[in-house]
Nucleic acid binder design. Sequence first.
DNA 1: CCAAAAACTCAACTACGCTTGAAGTACGGG
DNA 2: CCCGTACTTCAAGCGTAGTTGAGTTTTTGG
Lengths: 158, 158
Amino acid sequence: MGEENVPSKEHWLSIGEIAHRSGVAASALRFYEDQGLIASRRTAGNQRQYQRSTLRRIAFVQAAQRVGLALAEIKQALDSLPEDRTPTRADWSKLSKTWRSRLDERIEELERLRDDLDSCIGCGCLSLQRCNLYNKEDRLSTRGPGARLLNVGIPGEA
Amino acid sequence: MGEENVPSKEHWLSIGEIAHRSGVAASALRFYEDQGLIASRRTAGNQRQYQRSTLRRIAFVQAAQRVGLALAEIKQALDSLPEDRTPTRADWSKLSKTWRSRLDERIEELERLRDDLDSCIGCGCLSLQRCNLYNKEDRLSTRGPGARLLNVGIPGEA
DNA sequence: CCAAAAACTCAACTACGCTTGAAGTACGGG
DNA sequence: CCCGTACTTCAAGCGTAGTTGAGTTTTTGG
């Protein structure tokens, strides 16, 4: 032990290395930088150099995308994290709670949809008589039969 | 009884009526028509007229969008339905099975993500040591520590 | 030292699902 | 008959998340 603990002056990574290790295209990395999601310093010859921790940020971005966040929101989340210390459990916990509820909502919505779908299989649907999938709030039309269809609450989707 | 069963020469709806009743903008309806999702006939003066059943198709489109299908896929689904008869239980059942598995997959993915998130709250994550959320398939890098991150399987998302 | 590989910038392009605007036509009530 | 609202087409634009390509410079290895 010892050799691995040497603080050893941060070793910077080229965009190619980051791209390879993160699986994210260099063009996307430049794009992320434009968007303020990641940062780099430059060599004398103007080439980007990244800290190792950038890989974490990228992973974070990817995870957040899977949660369904837009890059702008991800940036906000990242900005809410401490500038350049490793985020603490508390930092992380706060963020993950937001994510969690996002996920929960989305999962619930999909489950509702799935259940409605199931009941539709039974009802021989598309005939539009009292079908959950269609008639979320039937009879909204000003007069006569016909529904204002499904436009109610698709949470999380402006 | 009887009055409601009169075949009563289909009564056609203007784009404005359809827009209002479906909650979908007229511009979107024209767009859907361009995309082959819905159809209309025209008046002598070239204005669109829709059958009532178009409201069903639109509802179908909306539901499918909630399932996560792209318009092109929705068109395929619609095309697989009988031209102009009301779809039968069997037609519907076939489609809904596809949807169902899409939904199941997506729900499962989100649940996995949620569980990983939970275990992360416990692990004080972002330090990148053996975290499920990050290290889906750790140590893929050619040498040394560092992971090819999270690029594994986001099913249903090309 | 020099070629090839890798990086740089900037603008333009992609795909999706629409919206917006301009210019013109149709429909319906008074 | 006329006015206002609703409709028509077509082209262009938007937001998101990048990719692609041209032309140039830097870095790396034999």
